[in-house]
């Protein structure tokens, strides 16, 4: 049964990757990447139960924080073209 849930999550991952490849704008790809992050948290949790090793949850926790910071960093990069740019001044483009 855990295997069934893991299979469903894998199918969802494949669909998210389809969107990441097709996505016309960069924001579609960022959204798909964020979805892949959420799905991998779920997959890690289910896989931990499947193999009876709940330590995978700690890895999932790290993925959760990385997902937040990574997405925000990518968005900031595409807005300012620079991660160390002063956010108080106007964007360059």
């Amino acid at each position: 049964m855990f295997a069934g849930a893991a299979a469903a999550i894998l199918v969802a991952l494949a669909l998210a990757i389809v969107r990441a490849i097709k996505g016309p704008t960069v924001f579609d790809r960022v959204l798909a990447g964020n979805t892949v992050g959420s799905l991998s948290i779920m997959l890690l949790a289910v896989f931990g139960f499947l193999t009876d090793r709940p330590e995978f949850l700690d890895v999932g926790l790290t993925y959760g924080f990385l997902n937040l910071i990574g997405t925000l960093a990518v968005l900031k990069f595409f807005r300012y073209g620079d991660l160390a740019y002063d956010a108080d001044s106007e964007p360059r483009s």
Binding site: V11, A12, L15, A16, A32, T35
Partner: peptide, 12 residues
């Protein structure tokens, strides 16, 4: 799992 699949389907 069902809602995960539905969400991914909607994404496409």
């Amino acid at each position: 799992s069902f809602f995960t699949l539905v969400g991914a389907l909607g994404l496409v």
